[in-house]
Nucleic acid binder design. Structure first.
Lengths: 230, 230
DNA sequence: TTAGTCTTTTTTGTATGCAATCTTCGTTGT
DNA sequence: ACAACGAAGATTGCATACAAAAAAGACTAA
């Protein structure tokens, strides 16, 4: 709940931090594309700073996995392959259930209430999905907030950091575009069931619903039709 | 197996890379202690470079979790608390079994043979533990290599990176000092059993032995005597 | 035409100087 | 005595200049 950014008191951020945020945003929204080299002087000119803070920001983004650096050649946006998607999913499938299990035993009352609010809002938007064009975007951002809140409630800062980096890198390619109403409703039902499991004091239940939740989502992105017949 | 460092071809590394390695080493061996501030000019003078490469190296180490940076105040070595130990262990307990499970299905023959060699060498050293003073150190480094090799065989680069960072930060405080011969033998038996499970084509078996392996190690560091009686 | 080599240009890597900020410590007023 | 204030010193943040390396292009020779 009370997730206070480390530098909340200080409104002024350093130039390096600004460059870091702007470049990350531009990678996310596609302004910088895969395999594109980021020239230090170009970025510096665009943002009206010198090369020094740009270099420092790029180095951070390399450590976080957004860029890859080749000595004496520069930094470029990492390309997203099928192998990357697989790797991230394998990790999410163990890390996020872990987060839910841990959160189950130590979540605070207000945090739980907040999750219920998010779930309710998402359920409302789900029923509007055929009439409201913006519905899917709303669900996507509420969904992200739901998962993020749950992860923070795990009381494991490293786990939260890992998931933040891992999931954010993949979020570029993820939305609710290929969810029909039935799939959306199941997804919402999962959220609600996770909360029920937590309320019932069963970490294992919560953990397994989360796994089902992720696997159901995966199945939509990688269809593997296997309709039993006969 | 064929784990080639990214810059193996280039013998010359940049000053930044050198500073990075040296400072990391000094954190590991205790030359820089917990909560100690690293002054950019001091480090620069000690290593005969200017502040620029030092700043860049420190920023990388911050991203990797070795240091923490406070704007306009500097970077200091992160202190290791009981909570940190708990967080890392929670992560290891899901990540390393995952690595073994993945490795089980796709490990190469030479890689498997290499693991058997390592296991054999460790078993030999184990029986010398009461006569050879250097035995424990040898086991520790072979053990690290065993786990590292297994993780790389998972064919999930992100997972390998995560574990490298997560485990390395905790390795400062870990050795085989409090293992008696019985515990050492069980640990060796675990290694061997993991290989047997892989050879038998059972990822679940391998995965669960790894979990037992980690939990047994944990029990030694956090004794929780609960001898059943009556 | 093409492979190879030298030159030019571009880009990254490092050093240094100065500005901004924080810390320390002495001073003053109550 | 002690809190508030302020100046001096220390330290990080940023800009700029130059060096080193790599890439691109031009020229030559086969």
């Amino acid at each position: 709940m009370d997730a206070i950014p480390a530098n909340a008191s200080k409104v002024v951020q350093t130039a390096t931090a600004r460059v870091h945020d702007v470049v990350k945003q531009r990678i996310l929204n596609g302004h910088y594309q895969a395999d594109e080299y980021l020239r230090e002087t170009s970025v510096a000119n665009e943002l009206n700073v010198s090369r020094t803070p740009v270099r420092e920001a790029l180095r951070e983004l390399v450590s976080e996995g957004w860029l890859e650096a080749i000595p004496h050649r520069g930094s470029r946006v990492v390309a997203w392959t099928a192998k990357d998607a697989r790797e991230v999913f394998e990790l999410r499938l163990v890390l996020e259930p872990l987060a839910v299990r841990l959160a189950s035993t130590q979540i605070s009352k207000p945090c739980f209430t907040y999750l219920e609010t998010l779930a309710t809002q998402m359920e409302s938007l789900t029923e509007e999905v055929n009439t409201n064009a913006e519905s899917r975007n709303g669900i996507a951002s509420l969904n992200h907030e739901f998962h993020r809140t749950l992860i923070l409630a795990s009381n494991n800062q490293r786990l939260a950091n890992l998931l933040e980096n891992v999931v954010r890198t993949s979020v570029i390619h993820r939305n609710f575009g290929n969810y029909d109403l039935a799939n959306l409703r199941r997804s919402m039902r999962h959220h609600r069931e996770i909360l029920e499991a937590i309320a019932a004091g069963s970490p294992e239940w919560a953990e397994n619903v989360m796994r089902a939740h992720l696997l159901a989502a995966q199945a939509l992105h990688v269809p593997h039709t296997n309709t039993p017949s006969g």
